[in-house]
Design a protein around this nucleic acid. Structure first.
Length: 491
RNA sequence: CGGGAUGUGGCGCAGCCCGGUAGCGCACUUGCUUGGGGUGCAAGAGGUCGUGGGUUCAAAUCCCGCCAUCCCGACCA
C-alpha cells in the first residue's frame, strides 16, 4: 500500500481531512469556509437527496424554490430569530462593479448602492412566511406542505469541511397548519422520517430527542433532533425538526378564516438536513483504509474489476464482466466496471477501498473458465470465490448484509460509548477518558446547563424522547430531576 | 474574532537559520515491461516559491501587511 491515511487513533481530524481528499469527495475553495464538492462526494449527496425527496413526497410534501436574497428588514420581524442569526449573515449592499481608476481590476460602483440591503439566506423562514401570507386565507388553503432544496450561507468563524461550512446545501421543509396539534404531529412525523433515513439508509443509529431551551433553534417553540455518535466519541446533530408555534405566522401576519368564520394565525413547522450528513457518514463508518459506505447510499454498490494479461484474455474477461453487469442492471444494482489498462488490479482494489465501494468483484481468466468470481466486502475486507450460478441473489444478500452489519457495528459502538453517570466526578472523568454520550440527571435549568458547559465543554445534546421517567438528582446541582438527558462533546 | 502553527509543480515534503536565481518522492506524458493486493526500467514535461509591499547589487530565504489552511479558545448546524 503506497498511500496511507493517518490512523484515526493518531489524529482523527487529520484522518478525516485526508480521507476527504484521497477519496475525492471535496476540496477547499479560495474563500474561507467554502468547499467544492467533487463528483464522487456530490454523488453521495445525490443519493441522499433522491432518497429523502421520495420520503418527503410520500408524506405529502411538494417542492418549491424561494429566493437566495432576503430583504434585511424581513429578518428582524421575529425577535428571537434575528438574535440567533444576525451574527452570521452575509449582506449584499451593491449591485454593480466597475473598472478601477488605475485599470488594475474592479471596484464596487458607489453609485450602485442598494436602497435596502439583502441578506443571503441563512435559512428561509422569513422569506417563506412573507410569501405564505398571500397563499393562506382560508382553512381550505391548509395545510401547506412545502420543501425546498437549496444552499444557505452562515458566516462561520471556525469551519470544517462538510460539517460546518460557510455555504452548505440542504433541504428545508416549511409547513403551515390550521391547528397546533397538527403542526406538532408534522414536526414529529418529519423527525421520524429523518430517523428512518439515518437508521435504514445511512446505517447510522441515532437518538431522537428534544433540545433544551438553550440549544433550541432561534424562533422555535420546540426543536427536535436526531443525534449520532462519531468514532472519536463526539456527538453530531444529524437532523432537526422545529415546531415553530405561531411565531412566524404572527410576525408575518399569516391568518386564515376558520370554518366558524373566525380569524386565526397559522401554525408552523420547519425541518432540515444538510450536506453535513456526508461528514456524518464518513465519521461514523470509515476506517484507516478509507471510506466505508452503506450500500443504500453508495454511488456504486459494486465495482467489477477484470484481470487479464493478453489481449485475448482481456476480451474474454471483459465480456464476462459485461454479462454480469447486465444482470446487476436488471435488478437495479448500481455498478461500475473499471477496465482501465493503465492500473493493475491491486491498485484498483486499494482505490475502491479508499472510496468505500461496498462490494468488489474481480474476474480473471481462471474465473471465466470455472464460471466463478471473486467477491470482496469493503467493510470486513473478507473475500470469497463463488460460482456465477445464483450470483445476483448472493450479491443482493451480501449488500443487505453489509448494510446490516455496518449498522450493527455502529450501534454496538454507540452502546459502548453511552455511559450512565450519577455524580459530577464521574461525569468529568468519563468525558475526559472515554467521551461519547453521558446519560445523567439534570435539574432542568439553563443555569446548570451553562455551568456544566463552562466546566467541561459538554452540552446537552438532547432530552431523549424515549427516556423513561426516573427519580434522580442533578449530576451538578444535586436538585431533583425526573429524567436523564444526554450530554456529550459535539461537532 | 483572539492565541499558536503552516503555505515551495496535482499530492507529500527538503531548501529558509547563514540571501546568489529551486530540488526530492508520489502522481503526470512517452516507450518497453508487468498484470489474481498500490509492477519494474528508461526518457520527458510541469513551479508567479499563497499574495501585496519593503530592505538589498541580488529575496523561496530577512522585515511588514493581507489571504487561506490546521490546532486551541469564544461563537455556531
Amino acid at each position: 500500500m503506497a498511500k496511507k491515511l493517518t490512523p484515526r487513533s493518531q489524529d482523527f481530524s487529520q484522518w478525516y481531512n485526508q480521507l476527504i481528499q484521497e477519496a475525492d469527495l471535496a476540496e477547499h475553495s479560495p474563500v474561507k469556509g467554502c468547499m467544492v464538492i467533487k463528483p464522487y462526494g456530490y454523488a453521495i449527496w445525490e443519493q441522499m437527496q433522491s432518497t429523502l425527496d421520495k420520503m418527503f413526497k410520500e408524506t405529502g410534501h411538494v417542492n418549491a424554490y424561494f429566493p437566495l436574497f432576503i430583504p434585511k428588514s424581513f429578518l428582524s420581524k421575529e425577535a428571537q430569530h434575528v438574535e440567533g442569526f444576525a451574527k452570521e449573515c452575509a449582506v449584499v449592499t451593491h449591485y454593480r462593479l466597475k473598472n478601477s481608476p488605475d485599470n488594475k481590476g474592479v471596484v464596487i460602483d458607489p453609485e450602485a448602492k442598494l436602497e435596502e440591503e439583502l441578506i443571503i439566506r441563512p435559512t428561509s423562514e422569513t422569506i417563506i412566511w412573507s410569501t405564505y401570507k398571500n397563499w393562506v386565507q382560508s382553512y381550505r388553503d391548509l395545510p401547506l406542505l412545502i420543501n425546498q432544496w437549496a444552499n444557505v450561507v452562515r458566516w462561520e468563524m471556525r469551519t470544517r469541511i462538510f460539517l460546518r461550512t460557510a455555504e452548505f446545501l440542504w433541504q428545508e421543509g416549511h409547513t403551515a397548519h390550521a391547528t397546533q396539534e397538527e403542526a406538532i404531529q408534522e414536526t414529529l412525523k418529519m423527525l421520524d422520517v429523518y430517523f428512518t433515513f439515518a437508521e435504514q439508509y445511512m446505517a447510522l443509529p441515532v437518538i431522537k430527542g428534544v433540545k433544551t431551551q438553550n440549544e433550541r433553534f432561534a424562533g422555535a417553540v420546540e426543536t427536535y433532533c436526531i443525534e449520532a455518535i462519531m468514532q472519536d466519541g463526539k456527538a453530531l446533530q444529524a437532523g432537526t425538526s422545529h415546531f415553530l408555534g405561531q411565531n412566524f405566522p404572527k410576525a408575518f401576519d399569516v391568518k386564515f378564516l376558520t370554518k366558524e368564520n373566525k380569524w386565526e394565525y397559522a401554525w408552523a413547522t420547519s425541518w432540515g438536513v444538510s450536506t453535513r450528513l456526508v461528514g456524518a457518514l464518513i465519521m461514523a463508518h470509515s476506517d484507516d483504509e478509507g471510506l466505508i459506505l452503506p450500500p443504500q447510499l453508495a454511488p456504486y454498490q459494486v465495482v467489477i474489476i477484470p484481470i487479464h494479461k493478453s489481449e485475448q484474455e482481456y476480451q474474454k474477461v471483459t465480456q464476462q464482466c459485461e454479462a454480469i453487469a447486465q444482470e446487476l442492471k436488471k435488478v437495479n444494482i448500481r455498478y461500475k466496471i473499471d477496465a482501465r489498462k493503465e492500473h493493475t488490479p491491486g491498485w484498483k482494489y486499494a482505490e475502491y477501498e479508499l472510496k468505500g465501494v461496498p462490494l468488489r468483484i474481480a474476474i480473471g481468466p481462471r474465473d471465466v473458465e470455472n464460471n466463478t468470481i471473486e467477491i470482496a466486502r469493503r467493510d470486513t475486507k473478507t473475500k470469497q470465490v463463488i460460482s456465477t450460478d445464483n450470483l445476483i441473489h448472493i450479491i443482493q444478500n451480501l449488500l443487505q448484509d453489509v448494510q446490516d452489519s455496518i449498522y450493527q457495528k455502529a450501534l454496538h459502538f454507540r452502546n459502548s460509548m453511552t455511559t450512565r453517570v450519577d455524580n459530577f466526578k464521574d461525569f468529568e472523568s468519563v468525558l475526559n477518558d472515554k467521551g461519547g454520550f453521558i446519560e445523567a440527571h439534570w435539574d432542568g435549568t439553563t443555569e446548570t446547563e451553562l455551568k456544566i458547559k463552562e466546566l467541561t465543554k459538554a452540552t446537552i445534546r438532547c432530552i431523549p424522547l424515549d427516556s423513561p421517567q426516573e427519580e434522580g438528582r442533578c449530576v451538578y446541582s444535586g436538585k431533583k430531576s425526573t429524567q436523564r438527558v444526554l450530554f456529550a462533546l459535539n461537532y
